[in-house]
């Protein structure tokens, strides 16, 4: 019981984090606006919301370069659909016009025709001091193109954290093993690599699925994806190296050397090279692509994310423990 507590902790953390990751609602947002182009004259705008509560008499207006256009009529169809009729004046300054409904902004909603020197300021700008009860609820950010799949943050990303943790554990055992030449350390190192590769595979497949849903392709030429592929190749090569040496002590030494060398270069590649050419990554937090931390209310993601990472890392250690004990048993039986 004493030595088990962390396994219970793993399950508890995963339970709490997974339930939260699936059950926390997304914050309301406008997800679709049509038409996408407006010209001076009367326009009818169809708005679709997500998790919204459209009500009769709700506030809606167009924003063009901080000048406001008030609607003629707002018809609420249901909680997430509304029709807005507005008289678009000629002479707006910016080519993109935003739409605001119930305090929710759909930026760049309309490509605007009939530009000019500006319009008369409408009387319907943002209401000051409006306390929106939905802003107080615990919600995940609702980002366009991600939508509900933002929840994958709590499932896909911890795979990589777990993999790095396991590979780090493996290298630690390799360093120790090089020092004292013990085969125990070698067994631990290779067990950690085995489980690490499982999580690497899971990370690759889940990443491909998520990428397909967000970026439209299973695989993109991206710094992080290259890093993942290189990691997989390195550790597969590690296993091949082990397979090609018969003598156990020699195998342990060669594998440990390769493991340390490869891991150090991998760390350089994963954490230094992306900083060097931080130009073209689709992943959050790389070159010009804002991380998740700039999202409003990012702490709401973090509150769930960190327990999820801790839970998955502990589960990875548990699997490693099983694997290592099995390997030890096999060695004892061999003898």
């Amino acid at each position: 019981m004493k030595h088990w507590w962390w396994k219970f902790l793993a399950i508890a953390l995963l339970l709490v984090a997974s339930i939260a990751a699936l059950r926390v609602p997304l914050s309301p947002a406008l997800v679709h606006v049509s038409p996408s182009r407006i010209a001076p004259g009367e326009v009818t705008i169809e708005v679709t919301g997500y998790n919204t509560r459209f009500t009769d008499g709700m506030q809606a207006y167009l924003v063009n370069d901080s000048q406001y256009v008030c609607p003629v009529r707002v018809d609420v169809i249901d909680a997430s659909h509304a029709r807005i009729i507005a008289e678009v004046p000629a002479g707006m300054r910016a080519s993109m016009t935003d739409l605001v409904v119930q305090g929710l902004t759909y930026p760049g909603a309309f490509f605007t025709e009939g530009l000019g020197e500006g319009i008369e300021r409408g009387a319907c700008g943002p209401r000051a001091n409006k306390l929106d009860p939905s802003g107080l609820a615990f919600t995940f950010p609702n980002r366009s193109i991600l939508y509900e799949s933002i929840r994958n943050l709590h499932f896909h990303v911890p795979m990589w954290f777990t993999m790095i943790a396991l590979m780090g554990l493996s290298v630690w055992h390799s360093i120790k093993g090089l020092g004292d030449g013990s085969l125990d350390r070698d067994r631990k190192a290779v067990s950690a690599v085995h489980v690490g590769l499982l999580f690497c595979g899971l990370g690759l497949v889940t990443g491909a699925l998520w990428a397909r849903a967000t970026w439209g392709a299973f695989w993109t030429n991206d710094v992080k994806l290259n890093g993942a592929a290189v990691t997989a190749l390195i550790y597969l090569a590690y296993l091949v190296l082990r397979g090609s040496v018969a003598d156990a002590h020699k195998r342990a030494r060669l594998a440990a050397i390769y493991n340390i060398f490869a891991f150090m270069l991998l760390v350089l590649f994963l954490f230094v090279v992306p900083r060097l050419n931080a130009i073209d990554s689709l992943h959050p937090g790389n070159g010009g692509n804002s991380g998740f931390n700039d999202l409003d209310l990012d702490n709401r993601l973090r509150v769930v994310f960190y327990p999820a990472v801790a839970g998955w890392v502990l589960l990875g250690l548990w699997l490693y423990d099983l694997r290592e004990r099995t390997a030890r048993l096999a060695e004892q039986l061999d003898r």
């Binding site: 290189v230 390195i234 091949v240 190296l241 090609s244 390769y258 350089l268 590649f269 090279v273 060097l276």
Partner: peptide, 26 residues
């Protein structure tokens, strides 16, 4: 390492390729 493992060019390519890949990209 490859020479010590007693395996020639094949092992060298398998071991070396993922490690030079980062260097190659940079």
């Amino acid at each position: 390492i490859a020479a010590r493992a007693g395996n020639g060019l094949g092992l060298m390519a398998i071991l070396g390729f993922p490690l030079v890949l980062p260097m190659l990209l940079a």
